[in-house]
Simulated assay, not measured.
Amino acid sequence: MTADLWTQYLPGLALILSIFTIGVASPGPATLMIMGTAMSRGRPSAVALSLGVVTGSMFWGCFAAFGFVAAIKASAELFTAMKLAGGCYLLYLAFKSWRSAMAREKPQQVQAMQPVSIRRCFVQGLLIHLTNPKAPLVWLATLSVGMGNTAPLPLLMLTVLLCAFMAMIVFVGYAFLFSTMAASRFYMSFRRPFDAVLGFLFGAAAIKILTARIA
Rank of each mutant, 00 (worst) to 15 (best):
A3E: 10
L5I: 05
L5C: 01
T7M: 10
T7Y: 11
Q8E: 00
P11Q: 07
P11V: 05
L13A: 09
A14D: 00
I16C: 00
L17G: 04
I22K: 12
S26E: 14
P27C: 07
P29K: 09
T31D: 02
T31E: 03
M33A: 12
M39E: 02
M39F: 02
R41W: 01
R43K: 15
P44H: 05
V47E: 08
V47W: 07
A48S: 11
L49T: 01
L51T: 13
G52L: 01
V53Q: 03
V54M: 07
T55C: 11
G56R: 03
G61Q: 05
G61P: 02
F63C: 04
F66W: 14
A71P: 00
A71Y: 14
S75Y: 07
A76L: 14
A76N: 13
E77S: 14
L78R: 07
T80N: 14
T80W: 15
A81E: 06
A81I: 15
K83H: 09
K83L: 11
A85Y: 02
G86K: 12
C88W: 11
Y89N: 10
L90T: 06
L91V: 12
F95Q: 09
K96G: 11
S97K: 01
S97M: 04
W98V: 10
R99I: 05
A103P: 13
E105A: 15
E105H: 11
K106V: 11
V110E: 14
A112C: 02
M113V: 11
S117M: 06
R119I: 15
R119C: 14
C121P: 13
Q124M: 12
Q124D: 09
G125I: 01
G125H: 02
L127D: 00
I128S: 08
L130S: 05
T131E: 03
N132L: 00
K134N: 10
K134W: 08
A135D: 03
A135T: 05
P136I: 01
V138L: 15
L140R: 05
A141L: 13
T142Y: 04
G146L: 02
G148S: 00
N149Y: 13
L153P: 05
P154M: 02
L155T: 10
M157K: 04
L158W: 14
V160H: 08
F165S: 15
A167T: 04
I169D: 01
G173L: 07
Y174I: 03
F176S: 04
F178N: 02
T180H: 01
M181E: 15
M181C: 15
S184W: 09
M188H: 10
F190A: 11
P193Q: 03
P193K: 05
D195H: 09
D195P: 09
F200W: 10
L201T: 02
G203C: 14
A205K: 08
A206F: 12
K208S: 15
T211H: 08
R213Y: 09
R213I: 15
